[in-house]
Amino acid sequence: MHRSLGVHRALDPVGVLPAAARRLDADPRLAPDEVRVDVHRIDLDAATWDPTEHGADGDAVRAAVLAGIERDGKLDVGPRGMVIGVVDEAGLDSPLGLHAGQRVVTLVPLTGVPLRVTDGLASWDGASRHVPTTGTAVLFARSVAAVLPEDLPQETALAVLEVCGAPAATERAVHRSGHRPSVAVLGAAGRSGCLSLAAARDARAGRLVGVVATEADAAELRAARLADLVVVADTSDPLAVAAAVGEPVDVTVVCVDAPGAEQAAVLTTADGGTVVFFSPAPASQAAAGAAEGMATDVTMLVGNGYTPGHAALALDLYRRTPGVQAMVDARVAR
Rank of each mutant, 00 (worst) to 15 (best):
G273V: 11
A286P: 10
V302M: 06
P259R: 14
T274N: 01
S196H: 10
C255R: 07
S236D: 09
V298L: 04
G187C: 08
A244N: 11
P181H: 01
E292F: 09
V183G: 03
A188F: 13
S196D: 10
Q285F: 04
G273W: 04
D228G: 14
P308D: 12
R225A: 15
L229E: 15
A295Y: 01
T274W: 00
V249M: 06
T299G: 08
T307Q: 15
A219C: 06
F277N: 12
L195Q: 12
V251D: 03
L301R: 07
A233P: 11
A189E: 05
A188D: 07
A265S: 14
S182N: 02
H310P: 10
G190C: 09
A311S: 15
A290Y: 12
A219V: 14
G206Y: 00
L313F: 09
A242V: 07
A200K: 08
A264K: 06
A286N: 04
T307A: 14
A188S: 09
Y306S: 09
A223E: 14
V209M: 01
D250T: 14
T299D: 11
G210C: 05
A258I: 07
D297E: 12
A218L: 06
G309M: 10
C255W: 10
A218S: 12
V183L: 05
L197M: 09
P248K: 13
A203K: 08
L208K: 02
A244Y: 12
V302L: 12
V253N: 04
G246W: 04
L313H: 14
T296S: 14
S236L: 01
E292H: 07
A283W: 13
R191T: 15
R207E: 14
G193C: 08
D297I: 01
T252K: 01
E247N: 05
G206N: 06
V302Y: 04
L221Q: 07
V275L: 04
G273K: 06
A291F: 05
G303M: 00
E262V: 01
A283H: 14
V230N: 05
V266D: 01
P282A: 01
N304V: 13
P308N: 04
G293R: 12
C255T: 10
A227V: 10
A223T: 14
A286M: 04
R225L: 09
M294E: 13
F278Y: 15
P259Q: 11
G303Q: 05
T268K: 03
A288N: 11
P280G: 08
A189D: 11
A311M: 11
V232A: 03
G272H: 01
R222V: 13
L229W: 00
Q263T: 15
V231W: 05
H310Y: 04
E292A: 11
A218R: 11
R201G: 13
A224D: 05
V302Q: 04
E220F: 01
F278C: 13
R191L: 12
A288C: 08
A291E: 10
P282K: 02
